[in-house]
Design a protein around this nucleic acid. Structure first.
Length: 450
RNA sequence: GGCCCUAUCGUCUAAUGGUUAGGACACGGCCUUUUCAAGGCUGGAAUCGGGGUUCGACUCCCCGUAGGGUCACCA
């Protein structure tokens, strides 16, 4: 499926409707349409389908734009169906004048229902198409009846607007969710009535919730929207990499991909036929991986974005704290949470702890422990403040720790510095705290034992 | 219910007639380690069922079964 010289340029589109925040399913659809277009050196169009005036909202329109930008899915053209009324009207009139559509008088049974709509004159035939993912699909369109294509000359319905736009915009490949397969015969009928070339279809398997049903806001809540993960401090690169692997694979064991690598190797033929569950565990793994690749400055920016973080200024001044703090997080909100719950308070202020914690494995020997801490203090005092880093600190403390028993020496030191049962190692802590503060905390612990 | 689609470890998936059915996430164990992690090694874990076709089926065909999608004057 490579683009040959002289072959028409590939044109794809992503066509969301601005009726809510962007859905993970839409993200995946957008990504695949984008990757396909870029892989073929083609054009990628963003088309906002806002013909439903009741449900379309400007804020969601903006949210779509923001999301596309955040994800890095750049488009070549953008259209809004609400601005294309005259175009649709032209085609509706054409269909009516050719007898392919007609104004239909309706019996009004519900509120808001029109007494007059425009229906497509269904030729009632079998429609077959070759779907790039599903293969050959055949439908009998008889059961569709003369379906509605517009509420009035100026109010086209989805089916008409989509087909007119795909035609006018020269879309060569319609890449969309599987929930649209059953709409496809309708669309093909309209393409034919218009005398327009029928594009190639590729219906993507659905992105499923853990209960194996289509992701839906009503049923599954906020976990369906990209916004949720973005606010949690996930990186766009993680989302892209993770979503690319839902329903698609490169055909080998490689799993970590940048977007430009994806563009190079993306192929619709490797798209899965069945739906796939959106599993956050793997997203966490990807995000952890990508966080490790960030510089401390970048990490700081991500943390800052979450807003209202304790000690943000202090962290900004001692940016090297970030590598330590991001060692085990899957997303930045986990770090924000740790910070808020005081897990890292000891880095910024004197720790408070009960004396019992300082004894190694129940080795409750006040005199011994005190003596060891005094020794440690003496050793550290001798270390030059200019080379007070963890390597040097470890080197100078190690012989004593070996002699006395590592745990017996290092555990009390670590507690004296952190006041915590769990924390980074004492060498790292000393370096971060600096020589002066390290000594102050050791003295505090020594006095506690007096 | 009609129509359409799908079916490999718990999850994402590889293997397009011949593999001890591979990888990743998650999980277990071991090692390392002053703690918690990380890291290294390692283990368990799958072809929905039944018929065919074939020397040989995860792979092709049929029938079941299960799951999903869709049946708007929403997109």
């Amino acid at each position: 499926m490579t683009t040959k010289i002289g072959e028409n340029k590939v044109v794809t589109r992503f066509a969301p409707s601005p009726t809510g925040y962007m859905h993970m399913g839409s993200v995946r659809t957008a990504l695949f349409a984008y990757l396909f277009a870029r892989n073929h050196n083609g054009k990628f169009i963003l088309r906002i389908e806002d013909t439903d005036k009741e449900r379309s909202k400007k804020e969601f329109d903006q949210a779509i734009l923001d999301t596309m930008k955040w994800l890095g899915l750049d488009y070549d053209e953008i259209y809004r169906q609400s601005e294309r009324g005259t175009i649709y009207r032209k085609y509706i009139e054409k269909l009516i004048s050719e007898g392919k559509a007609f104004v239909s008088k309706e019996e009004v049974t519900e509120e808001g229902q029109r007494s007059e709509v425009i229906r497509f004159k269904n030729p009632n035939k079998k429609i077959s198409f070759k779907d790039l993912i599903k293969g050959d699909v055949t439908f009998d369109t008889t059961e569709l009846g003369d379906f509605v294509i517009a509420k009035s000359l100026d109010e086209p319905v989805f089916h008409l607007a989509v087909v007119v736009d795909d035609f006018e915009m020269g879309i060569t490949h319609v890449i969309r969710g599987e929930d649209h397969v059953s709409n496809t015969p309708r669309h093909i009928l309209i393409f034919e009535a218009l005398g327009a070339p029928v594009p190639t279809f590729a219906h993507l398997p659905l992105v499923l919730a853990p209960d194996r049903t289509k992701l839906s806001k009503r049923k599954h809540g906020e976990i369906v929207s990209l916004e949720y993960y973005r606010k949690l401090g996930y990186l766009s690169v993680s989302i892209i990499n993770f979503m690319a692997l839902i329903g698609w694979n490169p055909g080998n064991d490689k799993e970590v991909f940048s977007i430009s690598e994806l563009i190079k190797i993306f192929d619709l033929e490797k798209v899965q036929k069945g739906g796939a569950i959106f599993n956050t565990e793997k997203l966490n793994w990807f995000n952890k991986h990508y966080i490790q690749l960030l510089s401390q400055e970048e990490k700081f920016l991500h943390l800052k974005e979450l807003g209202d973080i304790p000690f943000l200024n202090e962290i900004g001044e001692k940016i090297n704290l970030l590598n330590l703090m991001t060692e085990r997080i899957s997303n930045f909100s986990e770090l924000a949470f740790s910070l808020k719950s005081g897990e890292y308070d000891f880095l910024f202020k004197k720790p408070e702890y009960s004396m019992d914690l300082i004894f190694w494995k129940g080795e409750v020997d006040v005199l011994k422990t005190k003596e060891r801490l005094i020794n440690v203090k003496t050793i550290l005092e001798a270390v030059d403040s200019n080379s007070f880093n963890k390597e040097v600190i470890k080197e100078s403390l190690w012989p004593f720790a070996e002699k006395e028993g590592r745990g017996s020496v290092l555990w009390p030191v670590r507690v004296a510095l952190s006041g915590k049962e769990k924390s980074p190692d004492p060498f790292t802590l000393s370096e971060i705290l600096g020589k002066d503060e390290t000594l102050v905390r050791l003295v505090y612990a020594i006095n506690l034992l007096s």
